[in-house]
Design a protein around this nucleic acid. Structure first.
Lengths: 342, 342
DNA sequence: CAATCGCGTGGTAGCGCTGTCAATATCGGT
DNA sequence: ACCGATATTGACAGCGCTACCACGCGATTG
């Protein structure tokens, strides 16, 4: 005899349909496209579902419809609080929607990213959010053939795979240097860690600004591939001071380095900004309440995540955003650590 | 005529089985329980799968087997870097395994947690990781009837739903106060934000230690429901100093508050630890490189996440951990900010 | 030597939902 | 009153995989 794996007491769509006095397919439509039903049936199905406590089986739905309601998110790091802000934005945007997140960590490796991308795509995600614009050629090719909305976040560039939201790291860094120049600083050092593509572009922005002012000097630049930390900020500043003792300011590629640099100054009894001005990047919360308060480049990370997720959802719902590339910009937060010189 | 939705060129298990010259069911077994196959067929299926680039359809698998390979994770906050360390541990532990993570944010609400729990459970997760031991009665009841491994993380308590990994916040706070007392401090303030259950237990630990030393004074305690931040640390310290100007030390329930308190001291030209000793909680990276370096209570957050995920996997694979409750402990990191008095 | 056991394998039928298309009901216009 | 167009609804089959059982075969047992 044929084995019947009956699930006793389980509430399926069929039960809801039966209670509502409609066919299963009509009940199904209620969940996917409610306005296609007449008001009467809509109400009946709704109350039947509520009464029975119906919860759709996502696996069955995914199998039958050949797509999922999962948005894949690829970020390079879970440690970096920059990404936790972005993630928070993404989760907030999806809260209450039918979509959920599948998160994966590329660890700043584009090969790892490609592997994860293939893994995600095999499960037919509803959409994809990827970090940055430096994917492998294969990754890019794959993404271009996939027919789900894709948003590249954190930065903007010339040729989006699909959509893009972020800001110009080059411009932001250049503006930060512009601010220091305007405040009267001349020997402006650069502290960089990890040196991922976006940090690299900040370095390019620094170079451009310094070069335009005829102040570029390789001695002013200290970088490392080591992941960033507050401790590292102190170490790098020490290195920089050894190479170029006459610096009057430092631009740090992130706020952790800036904080570490500040502590290093305290340790050396160097006045900030009296002897050394400091500017960070990202404008994390603590920058506004340190002593002295630390100048930084504010980036809109939460909004980036939130809008990226919103763009995916809008596209999925047929309301494709008018502008596929969104520049969220940045702003220079001028605080005590970069007060006008002298 | 019946509509056939044929998927052209798609590689299904049937294709793999055909190429390997076995039945689909044998091919299926290869992926679920390889050692049940004879060596010959195992090799044949393996090479066939590789040759065709077969990727299993997770939705079909979930539908047919009535379970998923998803481990649900409920955490209260995405912002708090304490949780990002835990998450990193979880993701690292699952890396390379067949399991994936479904993450949800309870925003410190146990009602929200209950809602998310129901949502997760409806999709039959392979396992569950939840934060803390303060669930609603309903949540607890639900969890106790579910037959998947569940790990409660961040703290330990008397009656685990299933498994548990963490440490005693009470003991940790009491030990921190014990350290300050041993260093000669007597008027020790308490700074608390958010006041979630774990922070509450730290307060209890503080109270116990102070009470044992006959030093407890309500004026020494400043708490708020506001979420924590560095800025808030400064504000709370200012409040405390207004209430009790004669304090000689502060215990902060987390490191952000401690950093904020440090900056507030600098602003007031109060020497640390000369006029005020500071001890934080969690031992985030910056605590060791501030000026002065800040004492803290080290908690093993990464290990907590990593072990929690490992415990779930072990249970799923039939190797249930010998000890269902794991105390990861803590350690007092004694640094400059709580140097011996005088 | 027959009865039993267990391993490796395959056949069959469904898991719960939705795509496709046909069928019916409703409606305005002539 | 008739026609075609539009809104609603339903029947059917199948998405890709696995649970359940059956079966054949050699090994074990008394």
């Amino acid at each position: 005899m044929a084995p019947k794996r009956i699930m006793p007491g389980k509430i399926r769509l069929a039960e809801v349909a039966k209670l509502a006095g409609v066919s299963p397919i009509t009940a199904s439509r209620f969940f996917r496209n409610p306005q296609a039903l007449s008001a009467g049936k809509r109400a009946r199905v709704e109350s039947a579902a509520k009464e029975l406590g119906y919860v759709p089986n996502l696996a069955a739905r995914a199998l039958a419809s050949q797509r999922t309601e999962v948005i894949g998110v690829l970020i390079p790091s879970l440690t970096n609080n920059v990404f936790s802000d972005v993630l928070r934005g993404i989760y907030d945007a999806l809260d209450g929607s039918r979509y959920s997140i599948q998160l994966a960590n590329t660890r700043y490796s584009i090969l790892q990213e490609e592997r994860l991308l293939r893994l995600f795509l095999a499960q037919k995600p509803a959409g994809l959010i990827v970090t940055g614009i430096n994917q492998t050629a294969d990754s890019r090719a794959i993404m271009e053939t996939v027919d789900c909305p894709i948003v590249q976040i954190m930065e903007i560039g010339p040729s989006p795979v699909d959509m893009m939201i972020g800001f110009s790291h080059f411009d932001a860094a250049r503006a930060a240097i512009g601010h220091l120049l305007a405040q009267g600083y001349r020997r402006i050092g650069f502290l960089g860690a990890r040196m991922d593509p976006r940090v690299q572009r900040r370095l390019d922005g620094y170079r451009a600004a310094m070069s335009d002012a005829a102040l570029l000097d390789p001695q002013l630049i200290v970088t490392t591939a080591i992941p960033t930390s507050v401790t590292l900020g102190g170490t790098l500043l020490a290195d920089l001071l050894a190479k170029a003792p006459d610096i009057d300011a430092v631009f740090c590629v992130n706020d952790d380095l800036a904080l570490g640099a500040l502590f290093e100054c305290k340790r050396r009894h160097m006045a900030v900004p009296g002897q050394l001005a400091i500017v960070g990047f990202n404008d994390l919360e603590f920058m506004a309440s340190s002593e002295p308060t630390l100048s930084s480049v504010r980036t809109n990370r939460y909004e980036m995540g939130r809008n990226a997720a919103a763009m995916v959802i809008e596209t999925l719902e047929g309301r494709r955003p008018a502008e596929p590339v969104v520049d969220l910009g940045f702003s220079i937060m001028e605080r005590q650590s970069s007060a006008r010189r002298g």
